[in-house]
């Protein structure tokens, strides 16, 4: 019976083999064949992600990263934190139980590139914002094993000594606007000043940050140093906003224990 069932396929393949035998004499035929065969999958899977509406949820309260947070994100990328930490809580019960509401697409809408990660040597960080104090984050980054003896995370003490470079922030926000992040002219112009302001709550600059990014923005001396705006300030500001750009996930999902 199998033989019968298979025979049309066998005949088809016989035909294909013969055609192939002729085609494989032409390098252009192979080239076109390869390009054609290798294009279908990508087009079918990627293009609709731009056209299907409910791919990315609506989140009216979503805000953009402040310049200081974006600078911190750039440092997170520079140091390769994504090699050990994911930022994607999967829709699995144990992950919701451990890390909180599962991640929504909209939460990384302004992430160029996304940092979902592919390995959890350390815990997921999608909702780590405000889980610890600024001081804890600083000390943990300076020496993780000081606070967590079992940790295998590297030390990043130099961040606390390195001045944050802010002059390029307007360019960086402008580039982000080019790729779709809705920064206003005002936000771009004031990027360098806002970066400093966000970590100097006592100054006038801080008011500008609250004005441009919302009153809920964290405005604190993140690294505890008032003499220098450091890379540590930026990285901790970024860590403390993770999961905090929008509340839509917590608002739309049933939480553990409800």
């Amino acid at each position: 019976m199998w033989r019968k069932l298979l025979s049309p396929f066998a005949r088809l393949f016989e035909f294909q083999a013969k055609t192939h035998y002729r085609a494989e004499r032409h390098s252009m035929a192979l080239t076109i064949g390869i390009i054609a065969a290798a294009s279908v999958g990508g087009i079918v899977e990627i293009a609709p992600l731009f056209t299907i509406d409910d791919t990315v949820e609506a989140a009216p309260d979503m805000r953009v990263y402040t310049p200081l947070e974006q600078a911190g994100r750039d440092i997170y990328i520079r140091e390769g934190c994504y090699a050990c930490h994911s930022q994607m809580i999967r829709s699995l019960q144990d992950e919701v139980d451990r890390y909180g509401p599962y991640s929504l697409a909209v939460e990384s809408q302004y992430d160029h590139p996304m940092l979902w990660g592919s390995k959890r040597t350390g815990p997921d960080l999608a909702r780590v914002g405000e889980k610890y104090s600024d001081d804890w984050q600083v000390r943990h980054l300076v020496d993780p094993r000081d606070l967590v003896p079992e940790s295998v995370m590297p030390q990043y003490a130099f961040l606390l000594e390195t001045q944050l470079e802010t002059a390029s922030l307007p360019d960086r926000l402008a580039a982000l606007r080019t790729v779709g992040v809705p920064y206003t002219d005002e936000q771009i112009e004031n990027a360098a000043s806002d970066a400093l302001g966000q970590s100097r709550p006592e100054t006038d600059r801080a008011d500008g940050v609250a004005e441009r990014y919302g009153d809920a923005t964290n405005i604190r001396t993140f690294d505890g140093r008032t003499d220098l705006l450091t890379e540590m300030d930026a990285l901790v500001a970024y860590l403390q906003i993770l999961g905090g750009l929008t509340d839509v996930a917590a608002e739309t999902q049933p939480a553990r224990g409800e």
């Binding site: 992600l49 909209v106 939460e107 160029h112 590139p113 996304m114 360019d171 960086r172 580039a175 790729v179």
Partner: peptide
Amino acid sequence: VPASWGGAKSYSLFSGVQDA
């Protein structure tokens, strides 16, 4: 898109789910 022609930093064209 490079942040500037004078530096290494660039931002990927796609973001979030499309970028993933």
